[in-house]
Amino acid sequence: MNDMTFVERDVDTNEVKIAAKDVQVFYGDNHAIKDVSVEIEDKTVTAFIGPSGCGKSTFLRCINRMNDTIDVCRVTGDLRIDNEDIYDTKVDPVQLRAKVGMVFQKPNPFPKSIYDNVAYGPRIHGLSKNKTDLDDIVERSLRRAAIWDEVKDRLHAPGMGLSGGQQQRLCIARAVATEPEVLLMDEPCSALDPIATAQVEELIDELRKRYSVVIVTHSMQQAARVSQRTAFFHLGSLVEYGATSNIFTNPVDPRTESYITGRIG
């Protein structure tokens, strides 16, 4: 672990954006998430690490209620964004997801043009006043996702025709185009090569200025590079949560230490 470099960043004391308390998730009879309580700060990158099947992605998907689309999945406990219970019956999951964007593990551009992919969210939420406005949003989003220069000459080419790394950045552009407040990223670099990964990581750091970013990753180096705070999940429980530098240099729980030194997982 000596090769790991920490970017010393000023971790300001930001206000809490997402607060989870005693969250439980069941897939049928399987108890997938047990008593997870965590407070995720605004304008911070929070990394979820842990071995496969430990529930990090499941917990991530609770935050924008993507688990609602799975029939057998049941979520209990208290999950608040900006102190508003997102599992309250009067919350519309559709509106919640507009506020909490998500980038998936595998790039999943729609079978549409690059432009239409990015314009999808703004169009369905009516975020643009007119065509020029929409053009601006698309350009701004693509620039923020660091892909504008590569695609500006072929905005109307199909999004499926891009390379894997470009597709993933397109999906990020698509997610930021709806102006979310929280961005959830489920292993966004697992299908990317090191160069594309570096670009996406740079982008995540950039996004931190405006959003609360939660990223699930299998790469501890990546967690160390991009995040300010890290949560370690093991067998459905949150084992340890704290400042990234603390977790990696001075873990409290022996399980965390075993995992980051490569003995379990």
Binding site: M66, T69, Q95, M102, F104, N108, P111, G121
Partner: peptide
């Protein structure tokens, strides 16, 4: 994945 992508953007 396409459905998830769309739902994730807040589409009905």
């Amino acid at each position: 994945a396409l459905r998830d992508g769309s739902y994730g953007l807040g589409a009905t």
